[in-house]
């Protein structure tokens, strides 16, 4: 019995069954393709990836951090990639996940900003609008089972209001005073919450910078897909500043005495 209804009622292929030995155990297949046999294929996987992004609210606005690495599997492939991207005058987005998808997102958002500028209607897009738009794109793509493989943080300040929110490949969104993606969600988030929750309106710029640097250092120690080169983005009422690449000071001397950590063989 042929269990594929799409084969039923189709002629046998006489070229490969020249002597009419029907019924064959395995009938030659000459019909149309069973459209559902393999399902619809869109599914991809991330190729060149970025790791964690961290972001916090502080007294003057939002501060974000991400390292400069784009990995190709376990290979540290690109070591000066910028993963913090300003969009318009009030917003920065930070991305983990697939870097080509992120660059596609950058181009969409940059086009949108240009379009809005060209309209010159007195309206400008703030972080709230950009996050909403980005969420709709991410959710629409997941609904096509063809996702943009990223975790994104959108942070910004407009009209005296701080905004910090998250969106990912599933279209899941949320807003909080500290957000961390990837390994940062496990390793850095507890440190950030301890420092920031309840202190959003008193935390100084220096203190914010210090806690982010310390978190990036812990991540560099423990996340094998991270780099000791990172950038900070600061969004305040005065505008956006994305820092030059900064180097993390780390110390590995503790490893010397630990068997299996350092270079000793026995």
């Amino acid at each position: 019995m042929d269990h594929f209804p799409t084969n039923w009622g189709r002629p046998r292929n006489d070229l490969s069954d020249a002597y009419g030995t029907f019924p064959l155990a395995q009938r030659p297949y000459n019909g149309g393709k069973d459209m559902f046999a393999e399902g619809v294929k869109h599914t991809q996987q991330p190729i060149v990836t970025g790791t964690s992004v961290l972001a916090i609210k502080y007294k003057d606005g939002i501060m974000m951090a991400a390292d400069n690495l784009a990995s190709y599997g376990s290979l540290a492939r690109f070591k000066s990639i910028q993963r913090l991207h300003p969009v318009g005058k009030y917003t920065v987005i930070g991305a983990g996940g697939d870097m080509s998808d992120f660059q596609y997102i950058q181009s969409i958002l940059d086009d949108t900003i240009i379009e809005e500028f060209a309209a010159s209607d007195g309206h400008t897009l703030g972080p709230v609008e950009i996050h909403e738009y980005l969420s709709q794109i991410m959710y629409a793509r997941r609904s096509k089972i063809d996702p943009l493989w990223n975790s994104l943080i959108v942070g910004g300040v407009k009209d005296g209001k701080r905004f910090l929110a998250y969106v990912d490949l599933l279209g899941t969104t949320y807003s909080a005073s500290t957000i961390a993606t990837g390994y940062g969600a496990f390793i850095a988030q507890p440190l950030l919450r301890k420092a920031v929750e309840g202190n959003e309106n008193t935390l100084t710029e220096d203190a914010a910078m210090a806690i982010l640097e310390e978190s990036m250092r812990v991540l560099y120690y423990r996340d094998a897909r991270s780099l000791d080169k990172y950038q900070l983005a600061k969004i305040t009422a005065d505008g956006i500043t994305v820092s030059e690449s900064r180097h993390l000071q780390t110390s590995w001397s503790f490893a010397e005495g630990i068997r299996g950590y350092g270079a000793q063989t026995q």
Partner: peptide
């Protein structure tokens, strides 16, 4: 890899 379009929150 099969992309799973759902999660539980």
């Amino acid at each position: 890899h099969q992309f799973n379009p759902y999660t539980e929150n």
